[in-house]
Every structure is written in structure tokens, then in C-alpha cells.
């Protein structure tokens, strides 16, 4: 009985204290009130908090919100935007598999399959690598995976996302978290 309430207590700290705080940070970032370094600092604090909570929360008592596979597409080496999104996804309680930069379409497919991902998030910073985004989404659809695809990066727009049949687009990291939540709930 005591143990049960302790776990409930810890879950409240996790969901309302940590994830709730990160949501607030994300919201304020999107509104232009907070800036990138503050988001990074908040994420570090979140990591520190998780480090304390995790050993206390026994295996299986916290359900992950789902797995997000993320990476920068083939031919593109930019990682800053991708890292910010990965960090905010982690902060929201998702299990994040980060494939890094210059990632082949086949590697996204493979990782999505192996990790039973719910969302694949693609980043591109160059106009020249936007076609690789299309190729990746095509490959995911061809493989017949039941996974949602979201895209982002400086040259990427909602119109481009629609054109390549991505399931969603966001122009910042907190928006990508919201999008992932909505797509998974749908």
C-alpha cells in the first residue's frame, strides 16, 4: 500500500513536475519568451531529475509515450535543429532513437521497424537535401510501416510537407512534440 502510493507520487513528479515543466518551457519558447540556451538548461535539469527518479521507479511502472526515430536526411550534415527536437521529445517522455546526420532512407526504415517506432522525424537544412526527405518518406510508405512521419528544418514548409505526403510539419521543436502527441493519439 505504501509502495503503491510512493510510485503514484513519483509518477506525479515525473509527469507534472518534469514533463509538465518542459511543456511550459516549450510553450514559452514557441511564444518567443524563452530562448535556445534556456531550453538546453531546462533539458539538462530534466535529465538530472530523471537520473534520480529512474532507479526509484521499478521497471514497467512507467509506460513510455512511444518511440520516435529521428535523423537528418542523406547528404545533410546539420544537426542542431535535429538535436533540439530530439531533446524536447525526450523531455516529453518519448523514447528517442537518434540516427544522427546524413542518414540513408533504408536506415530510417530499418530503425523504425526494429524499434517499433510510432513516429519518424526527418530534418533537413539545405534546399539541396529536401529531395532526400521525399525519398525517405517514399521508402517508409513502400515498406508499409504503420508509422507517422514528421518533417522540419529551415527550408521546409507545410506546403512541402503536404507535397511529399508527410503526416506533419512543425517550424520549431516544441511544435514537433505537440505534433507527435497528436499523431500518436489519432
Amino acid at each position: 500500500m505504501v509502495r503503491f502510493s510512493l510510485i503514484a507520487f513519483l509518477k506525479t513528479i515525473l509527469n507534472e513536475g518534469l514533463i509538465g515543466a518542459m511543456d511550459e518551457v516549450g510553450k514559452k519558447f514557441s511564444e518567443g519568451e524563452l530562448f535556445v540556451p534556456e531550453m538546453l538548461m531546462a533539458a539538462q535539469a530534466m535529465k538530472g531529475g530523471l537520473g534520480i527518479l529512474k532507479p526509484l521507479l521499478a521497471e514497467g511502472t512507467t509506460e513510455s509515450k512511444g518511440t520516435v526515430v529521428i535523423g537528418t536526411v542523406k547528404g545533410d550534415l546539420h544537426d542542431i535543429g535535429k538535436n533540439l527536437v530530439a531533446m524536447m521529445m525526450e523531455g516529453a517522455g518519448f523514447n528517442v532513437v537518434d540516427l544522427g546526420v546524413d542518414v540513408e532512407a533504408a536506415k530510417f526504415v530499418e530503425a523504425a521497424q526494429a524499434n517499433k517506432a510510432k513516429v519518424v522525424a526527418l530534418s533537413a537544412l539545405l534546399t539541396t537535401t529536401m529531395p532526400a526527405m521525399q525519398a525517405t518518406i517514399d521508402a517508409i510508405k513502400e515498406a508499409g510501416l504503420a508509422v507517422k512521419t514528421i518533417v522540419g528544418g529551415a527550408p521546409v514548409t507545410q506546403a512541402f510537407a503536404d507535397q511529399i505526403k508527410a503526416d506533419g510539419y512543425s517550424d520549431d521543436a516544441p511544435g514537433a512534440v505537440e505534433l507527435a502527441r497528436k499523431l500518436i493519439a489519432a
Binding site: V36, L40, I80, N83
Partner: peptide
């Protein structure tokens, strides 16, 4: 140049 906001 890399952004100073992610690494001081």
C-alpha cells in the same frame, strides 16, 4: 560559424 546558443 556555429550557434553560440547551443555551446558557449
Amino acid at each position: 560559424v556555429q550557434p553560440m546558443s547551443v555551446n558557449n
